[in-house]
Measured scan of single mutants.
Amino acid sequence: TTYYDVLGVKPNATQEELKKAYRKLALKYHPDKNPNEGEKFKQISQAYEVLSDAKKRELYDKGGE
């Protein structure tokens, strides 16, 4: 599973699309609303952290993490 899959976006997604997808999923899986989905929330946050940063995203796209 790639970070793009976690957020449900395509690899060519814009920053705005990433932000929108992250917010939607973060609300859905937030531990306050969904106590059993803490791990999913962490995955979503990690994916967004990497993909929202241009340098980290470039490194990730080249095969790094």
Rank of each mutant, 00 (worst) to 15 (best):
N36K: 10
Y22L: 04
E17Y: 03
Y4Q: 00
Y22M: 05
E58G: 06
L7G: 00
Q43F: 07
A21Y: 02
Y60Q: 03
Y4V: 01
V9T: 04
I44C: 02
G63F: 15
S52F: 07
A21N: 04
A13D: 02
R57P: 02
P31V: 06
S52W: 04
Y4E: 01
A13S: 07
T14A: 04
I44P: 00
K19C: 13
S45T: 15
L51S: 00
V6A: 06
E17H: 04
E58Q: 10
V9I: 07
P31C: 07
S45Q: 15
K55L: 09
Y29W: 06
K10E: 11
K28S: 08
K62E: 07
S45I: 14
A47L: 01
Q43L: 13
K55S: 11
I44D: 00
N36V: 10
Q46Y: 09
L7M: 05
L59E: 15
Q43Y: 08
E17P: 00
S45P: 00
D53C: 06
N34T: 05
Y29A: 02
E65A: 14
R23M: 15
Y29N: 03
A13C: 14
K20Y: 09
K20C: 12
A47I: 06
V9Q: 02
G8V: 02
K24W: 08
E17N: 03
N12M: 06
P31H: 06
K62G: 08
L25G: 02
D53Q: 05
K55R: 12
L7Q: 00
K28G: 05
E65F: 14
E49A: 12
Q15R: 08
T1I: 14
D61T: 02
P35W: 06
P31I: 05
K56W: 07
K19I: 12
N34D: 08
T1Y: 14
K24V: 10
E65H: 12
K55Y: 12
K33C: 14
T1Q: 14
S45H: 14
V50F: 10
K42R: 15
P35S: 08
Q46L: 14
K20L: 14
Y60E: 03
Y48S: 01
K19D: 15
S45C: 14
K62V: 07
D61F: 02
Y3V: 02
K62F: 07
K28H: 09
D61M: 02
D32W: 06
E16Y: 08
K40W: 11
L18Y: 01
N12W: 13
N36Y: 11
P35D: 07
T1M: 14
G38W: 15
R57K: 06
N36T: 13
L25Q: 05
P35Y: 05
Y60S: 03
V6Y: 07
K55M: 10
K19A: 15
E58N: 09
T14E: 03
T1F: 13
R57C: 03
R23W: 14
E17R: 03
K56T: 11
I44G: 01
E65Y: 15
S45G: 06
L7T: 00
D53M: 03
D61S: 02
T2N: 13
K10C: 14
Y60T: 03
S52T: 06
E49G: 07
A54M: 13
L7D: 00
G64M: 15
E16C: 09
Y3R: 01
K20E: 15
N12H: 10
E58W: 06
L25A: 05
N34A: 12
Y60V: 04
K40L: 12
Q46T: 10
I44H: 00
A21T: 04
R57T: 02
P11M: 10
K33W: 10
G63S: 12
K56F: 06
A26G: 04
A21S: 05
E39M: 08
K56L: 14
T1D: 08
P11E: 09
K55E: 10
Y4N: 01
L51M: 01
P35G: 08
E65N: 12
R57N: 03
K10R: 11
H30P: 04
E49F: 10
A26R: 11
G8F: 05
L51W: 00
V50W: 06
K10D: 09
N34Q: 07
K33I: 15
I44E: 01
Y48R: 01
H30Y: 05
A47R: 00
K10V: 07
V6M: 08
K19M: 14
K33G: 08
Y3C: 06
E37P: 05
G38R: 14
A47T: 01
A54Q: 10
K40F: 10
A13H: 02
N36L: 13
P35I: 07
V9N: 00
Y4S: 01
A13N: 01
R57H: 02
R23L: 15
N36W: 10
R57M: 03
K56Y: 06
F41V: 03
K28E: 12
K24Q: 12
E37V: 06
H30I: 05
L7I: 04
T1P: 14
V50S: 04
V6W: 12
E65V: 13
N36P: 07
D5Y: 04
T14D: 05
Y29C: 04
K55H: 11
K62Y: 08
K24T: 10
K24H: 09
A21R: 05
A26V: 14
G63E: 12
G8E: 07
K24A: 11
P11Y: 08
V9L: 07
L59N: 12
V50N: 04
G64H: 13
P35K: 09
G64F: 15
V50Y: 06
D5M: 07
D32S: 14
I44W: 02
Q46C: 10
K40R: 12
Q46I: 15
E16R: 09
E37L: 08
G8S: 04
Y3Q: 02
